[in-house]
Simulated assay, not measured.
Amino acid sequence: MSTLELHVDVGVPVDKAWETLHRVENYPRFVEGVRGARTEAGGRAHLDVEAGGRAREVEAEVSDRGERVMEWLTTSAPELTGSFSVQPIDQNHTRIQARLEYDPSTVRDAFGGPKGFAQTNAIQRLVRSDLEHFKEYVERG
């Protein structure tokens, strides 16, 4: 398993960042490749994803752990585990910390793309880009 941790600071209060991150339906607006998303019963989420020219449906279990920590685990291929933590910096600024655990070969099998170090760099760029898109989205209101 590989682990990636990145963060972005956003210019909104912690409650606004937390609420926006919790609305799975908004993910197509800031997560690359997510074409549709919905919350389902029992803390589950369904994502329609397109990556590497391949369309997939991904199911995940989503739960809150502790104060302002959201964890998720895919229940369909590819196997991914991650979390978002939302931490106040001050009254009007918040840090979003993203953590992703993945098996590079499983991700490659599911979505294609480069192998080895190039794949790690591609995933890091994608997550960083998604965090920047989240920043733009949440700050626009």
Rank of each mutant, 00 (worst) to 15 (best):
L4F: 04
L4C: 07
E5M: 11
E5I: 15
V8T: 13
V8W: 02
D9T: 15
V10N: 05
G11N: 14
G11A: 15
G11Y: 03
V12P: 06
V12C: 10
P13S: 10
P13H: 07
P13L: 09
V14G: 03
V14T: 12
V14S: 09
K16W: 02
A17S: 09
A17C: 07
A17W: 02
W18N: 07
E19Y: 00
E19N: 11
T20P: 01
L21A: 12
L21T: 04
L21C: 07
R23G: 01
R23T: 11
V24G: 02
P28Q: 06
F30L: 06
V31L: 13
V31K: 03
G33Q: 02
G33M: 01
V34F: 06
G36T: 01
G36S: 13
A37Y: 00
A37M: 02
R38M: 08
R38C: 04
T39I: 03
T39K: 13
T39V: 11
T39Q: 12
E40D: 11
E40S: 09
E40T: 12
E40M: 12
A41L: 09
G43H: 06
R44E: 13
A45H: 02
A45E: 12
A45I: 08
H46D: 09
H46E: 12
L47T: 04
L47P: 03
L47G: 06
D48N: 08
D48T: 14
D48L: 12
E50N: 04
A51E: 08
A51H: 12
G52C: 10
G53Q: 06
G53S: 06
G53M: 05
R54K: 15
R56M: 14
R56Q: 13
R56Y: 03
V58C: 03
V58D: 01
E59M: 15
A60D: 00
A60G: 02
E61N: 10
V62G: 03
V62I: 15
V62R: 03
S63H: 13
S63M: 10
R65W: 02
G66R: 08
E67Q: 14
R68E: 07
R68V: 11
V69S: 11
M70Q: 15
E71T: 14
L73T: 14
L73V: 10
L73G: 04
T74D: 06
S76H: 05
S76W: 06
A77T: 12
L80S: 08
L80Q: 15
T81A: 14
G82Y: 02
S83C: 06
S85D: 13
V86N: 05
Q87R: 10
P88G: 08
P88M: 09
I89R: 13
D90F: 04
D90W: 03
N92Y: 03
N92K: 08
H93S: 15
H93N: 11
H93I: 00
H93C: 05
H93A: 14
T94G: 02
T94P: 01
R95H: 02
R95L: 04
Q97I: 11
Q97N: 12
L100E: 00
E101V: 14
Y102M: 02
P104H: 02
S105D: 15
T106F: 00
V107Q: 01
V107P: 00
R108A: 11
R108P: 01
R108N: 05
R108V: 05
D109C: 00
A110M: 05
A110R: 01
A110W: 00
